[in-house]
Design a protein around this nucleic acid. Structure first.
Lengths: 358, 358
DNA sequence: ACGTCGGCTCGAATCGATTCGGCTTCTTTT
DNA sequence: AAAAGAAGCCGAATCGATTCGAGCCGACGT
């Protein structure tokens, strides 16, 4: 009543509040609230009055913001993705993961807020009204933000990350998966193998896989996959690609393959199917037959658009990882403390591997 | 002090509030707030005290929920997408659009909340704490929800939708774009052309393009593109695909092409590049040469993964559409009322069209 | 030495809804 | 018919922070 709030046609409009509806209906705000939410005993008569008043005033239902504050929940789960949308979403694995995640959290009516993990990004996890955060495919060097969240008691789940971080982790058997592939190649007689890795640190510049960069690596999954390869081909080297894209794979493969035949690897372990697709393209450009001259394996087990060959690879449950993360979130929000999950992968033979050329 | 709130170690934890920090620092809540936000004149001394107290208490900064309520803004823009994430995000056009959108709204530090427009979805636009909503590639038959939002004064922008809806609309010249392609085909001598459309209504079942379905159509963009084709090939018919995916295009094309040569269309207008890619695949399966036996055009001008041919198509600024939507949102949130935008498209010749076979 | 001007801090209202205990009425039970 | 019970409604506190006007105190000007 003080100042001009009553005459608040001064702004563009004055959204009616629940209180306004209540007073118009001649009931108390509490009753109006009950009538709307259906949480308490309200006579049909009263409810009708409230609804009528709401209609007359053009009331659009309780303000989600106020509800959120009161409830202490916003119904929003933040998804920290590694890069801006246009880039991140070119990765089918990421999409499947988010899909599984979204599906699972929709059980509690929550939605997914995309938060690109780019430093200059204006939106930061820390001032977003999220109930929980999922780090999907991020390298957790954003520790500072993370313990801010922890301090706020916001549940966090990461998919494929450092185990030691005090964050619930969902992973797959990266090491074992790649070892399966490597063993497969060794059984075929390959001895000169090379690897094309996914980004290994925050600045994902492509280049040779050097000891220095490996030492400074922050992306756990990539390291694990390298380790898997090393467990079979101890000294294996290769190149780091700039991302899970076929053009990046092609680029890396061209460098690895465009050498004298004697030095050329007879097998390439690509750390993703998209990379592998790029390797196949490079091989074709160089006139190398797959698998006669070169064997190629991938990782992920996705269907690569436009690739008619069936890739030898390991399948990982991308969607399952997202779903597991979602379930973990749901459980944590309910007060539980779920067990970390590590998924197994499945060897998936294709026609891109064959006996090593003699 | 009543009941056991004071002893609220009863819950899992009791997040310290700004008030707690203030009292520990020996200042008033208002001062503490000022110290944190840096909005008012606070002595360095006091600020330090407050910050120290916050650190001791493990205070993680102001609760975004409370801030949102107070400010009346959540910093979240809702993006209504046509299907669940895994499906929607297979469409590169959608992704680019979202990318442009996200980029633009990050200017005001807002984030994107994904809201799948599926009826059974638990999360609904109406109880999400969003400052604005973008309908991207949705058919607006969700009118009921929409005027709920309007009533709440939530700015809305739609990308490619009914003009008549009282919603700010961003579009492209669908009609003109397809006409360019159709004219191109006519100049090449084609007379028997068929069209493969994107979904035309909510239940996106594939099937022949019949008058009935066309009459019941709800997807504006699809209709406009059909109209563009009709302006050159008046009686053109074809099939409705189930989505912008190459397998859907292939499926539709197989039906259209697997007929006696005399009836077979010599040109197919696919309403998206992905559909066109599917058409190319189908043609190859049927032993038809492109462009000698069949000309194919698409729409969108995207780079189709795994497609080495260069498609004759029109390019549309998908990202630009998203960015325009983002700018519109920003302007509307600032109180302005932006002008609706319609983008032009650009003919992009490729090698998938040629003279009609004699 | 007194009035005034700034700089800093505090009180209190506010954002919009939810919820719990208590109070009134009306109905049922013995 | 009195006691007990139930149904329906209201008051007031609460969620956690922001913000505006007012107040206090030291410093400066004359």
């Amino acid at each position: 009543m003080n100042r001009d709030r009553a005459a608040s046609g001064d702004r563009t409009e004055a959204r009616p509040t629940l209180a306004a509806v209540a007073s118009r209906a001649g009931v108390s705000p509490s009753t109006a609230s009950l009538a709307f939410s259906g949480h308490g005993p309200v006579s049909d008569d009263t409810r009708a009055k409230v609804l009528a008043a709401a209609a007359e005033l053009g009331y659009g239902g309780p303000d989600p913001l106020a509800q959120s504050l009161r409830r202490g929940r916003s119904g929003i789960i933040g998804a920290l993705i590694p890069a801006r949308i246009g880039v991140s979403f070119r990765d089918p694995v990421l999409i499947q993961t988010l899909d599984g995640l979204a599906e699972e959290i929709s059980a509690i009516g929550a939605g997914l807020l995309l938060i690109p993990d780019v430093s200059d990004g204006q939106l930061s996890v820390k001032d977003a009204p999220v109930d929980a955060v999922v780090l999907v495919g991020c390298n957790v060097d954003t520790i500072s933000t993370l313990d801010l969240l922890r301090r706020r008691n916001i549940p966090m789940v990461q998919i494929e990350g450092e185990e030691d971080a005090a964050v619930h982790t969902i992973g797959v058997d990266n090491r074992g998966g790649v070892r399966l592939l490597a063993e497969h190649l060794r059984e075929l007689g390959h001895t000169r193998a090379a690897i094309i890795t996914l980004p290994i640190d925050r600045d994902s510049t492509p280049g040779p896989l050097t000891a220095e960069r490996e030492a400074a690596a922050t992306v756990r999954a990539t390291l694990e996959r390298i380790a898997g390869a090393r467990s079979v081909f101890p000294g294996i080297g290769g190149r780091i690609a700039s991302g899970s894209r076929s053009d990046a794979g092609r680029e890396a493969a061209l460098v690895l393959l465009d050498v004298p035949p004697a030095d050329r690897p007879t097998a390439i372990l690509a750390q993703s199917d998209l990379l592998a697709a790029g390797v196949l393209a490079a091989a074709e450009e160089l006139g190398l037959r797959v698998p006669e001259d070169l064997s190629v394996v991938g990782f992920d087990g996705i269907r690569v658009e436009g690739l008619e060959r069936s890739l030898t690879t390991v399948w990982q449950p991308s969607q399952g990882k997202g779903a597991a993360a979602g379930r973990a979130i749901v459980e944590m929000l309910a007060g539980g403390s779920p067990e970390p999950v590590t998924f197994d992968v499945r060897f998936q033979p294709g026609d891109t591997t064959g006996p090593a050329p003699s």
